[in-house]
Design a protein around this nucleic acid. Structure first.
Lengths: 141, 141
DNA sequence: TTCCACATTAGATATTATCTAAAATACATG
DNA sequence: CATGTATTTTAGATAATATCTAATGTGGAA
């Protein structure tokens, strides 16, 4: 992934380009999995051990606030993160909690009637079931 | 809410009807908000202080596994719980994390092509934005 | 009434995330 | 290039949320 692409993404979000923040963003753009904060911290520090846990959390928070990264909460597990590239939905495995991408479907803006005084921003579709790996294991029991 | 309705719900899920479990289920059926485990524990013990935190978590886990209760993970906050009554979707406030019900829309089963070897169970729609209270506060800044 | 699989308890522990205050640094500006 | 400053990073402490443990109690079938 091009250095300038990443640097420009950060600037577009109004964020300074520090080595630690760059590393988090680069890792997310280069890995389409959905790593947890702990996984990102480990991966980034494996390459260049100059970041701390706190900074990784800070940067993830900043990237989410800037709209560059999506946070996916998973029941009973650590949150997962995802650079916003192509639009997509998520499949969450009931068994292992892994998050996988699903193709994008356009979703209807909710009717004003059902929205009331709320301010709508977006909606997202979450598919649930067993991921391929867990489905295979399940078959042998 | 009728005692027998709740008792039968538990039995339908293959769960014994203990006072603590009954209290959790009754509270969820009688309150359409989306309380956290801590809130449920506090509310249940206010009425009859015979439950422990661990038991509340155990019972919530059991109720979710039995399909009687839904767990809603919220980014950076405690999970919220919801008795499965009428089908509905959820609106999650970006600012305060509150979960509110939204009317039900039927959703398409994903195409076999995009599902691959995964086993589909359900899909859910999550609306995001500002709840009425937070939208009002936002207007004054 | 008895029995036992299942449930509960208090407290310890694990996991995930945030806070703090001092030190370092990105980068706009001169 | 040098400077100033608001932002960022750091390590460690702390907070918030959830699970585990092992001893004790109990719902409900027979």
């Amino acid at each position: 992934m091009d250095v300038d692409t990443i640097r420009r993404s950060l600037e577009a979000g109004g964020l300074r380009c520090t080595p630690q923040r760059y590393a988090v963003m680069a890792f997310l753009m280069e890995h389409s999995g959905h790593p947890t904060a702990a996984e990102i911290f480990a991966a980034v520090n494996r390459v260049d051990p100059r970041s701390s846990r706190g900074t990784t959390y800070n940067n993830l928070r900043d990237l989410v606030q800037a709209g560059l990264v999506r946070e996916v909460a998973v029941e009973g597990r650590a949150a997962r993160f995802d650079a916003k590239g192509m639009r997509h939905h998520h499949f969450i495995c009931d068994r292992c909690g892994n998050v996988e991408d699903m193709e994008w479907y356009d979703l209807p803006r909710p009717a004003a009637r059902s929205l009331g005084k709320r301010v709508f921003r977006e909606c997202e579709l979450i598919f649930r079931g067993l991921c391929a790996k867990c489905a295979r294991r399940q078959a042998f029991r």
